[in-house]
Design a protein around this nucleic acid. Sequence first.
DNA 1: TAGATTGTTAATCGATTAACAATC
DNA 2: TAGATTGTTAATCGATTAACAATC
Lengths: 208, 208
Amino acid sequence: MKGFKIPEATISRLSVYSRYLENLHRKGITTVSSADIAQGVGVTSAQVRKDLAYFGEFGTRGVGYNVKELLDHTLKILGLNATWNMVVVGAGNLGSALCAYRGFRERGFYIVGVFDNDLTKIGKKINEYEVLPIDQLEEVVRENNVEIGIIAVPAAYAQDVATRLVKAGVRGILNFAPTVLNIPEKIIVRSVDLTVNLEVLTFNIRRD
Amino acid sequence: MKGFKIPEATISRLSVYSRYLENLHRKGITTVSSADIAQGVGVTSAQVRKDLAYFGEFGTRGVGYNVKELLDHTLKILGLNATWNMVVVGAGNLGSALCAYRGFRERGFYIVGVFDNDLTKIGKKINEYEVLPIDQLEEVVRENNVEIGIIAVPAAYAQDVATRLVKAGVRGILNFAPTVLNIPEKIIVRSVDLTVNLEVLTFNIRRD
DNA sequence: TAGATTGTTAATCGATTAACAATC
DNA sequence: TAGATTGTTAATCGATTAACAATC
């Protein structure tokens, strides 16, 4: 980790801004102000400018931002000027949903392997992907320069899978299992916990 | 919204604590310290005590917390002393994955209807659920006291679905579509955006 | 009592917002 | 020039952490 501290929330928002800019660009809009972006994604314009200011000066005072230029900058910041190879471990319903999700490819994320340990699933096709035996995980990760592993297995297996992914050489993990993973600090982990999200919802519903 | 400000992160952590306590309880462990919990879920013990302190005094100085009691308190705080009825809109891969997810039921979340507008899907079974035509959404929500709607449709349809869910009477929405929803303030929304999560990951990978 | 651990306060740290000079 | 909007600073707000008195 280099340089100074950038809030994680800033990065999330940058991702949202970048998608919003894509929409504007698709519509042929060429100029946008921080107030426009703010309005479009539901934050304040000061927040937009502050978020961008961490990375440079992308606008013109009195004018605003060039949509295409700012889009390119945000994509570059997020690491999306290149493509990323991923593996999905777990070919259940969630794994299948992830394989079918078109949004990944549109942003440059490619799935190069789907794995399971269930013999009834191995060899079956999910979309264009053949489910591979988990034994081949390491091989596929190494041979395809896979940097991201997606964990879509039951909680009980998640730690094992995480350990194997790390050993195989991934640098980031997106974890859908409701477990705290124990892995080296240098590996980046994001956990998406459906139950936690629902429970924050119920807390807030109950509260008002 | 009543009372004073409680950080949203506190609620997320409470959900995690509560799952950890369930594990301890299942193992027959009866007493736990804030340091134990902290170690188990990867936060500091001060954080654990502070989070709990928003809601009361649940421990005994010099001793710790009674696992079962603290578990009950956390469940109550999160609104899990009752069950919640939900509908899932969108019977694609993601919708199917959500219907199949056993973790919901274990925490008291029940799916009472799955909807789609695709005639080839309507009438089909997903697990035990028959896919219903979207026209029946309002009826099912009203008749089953549904308070939570899950949006699992493509981004282009998400706003429409959200508006209908709100009109039908849900109080909270879990949104999987990568869109900013425009709905009344009093409706609680949580968005789970897979691409944003991946892009925070790639940013961090690139950065070190 | 001595040892342990909570509940809570105060200090620190970090993120957001408001405001405005810079500048197109 | 007058009007608009950026980039940035300082003020505010909020969350985390450290420390310790209370107390079992």
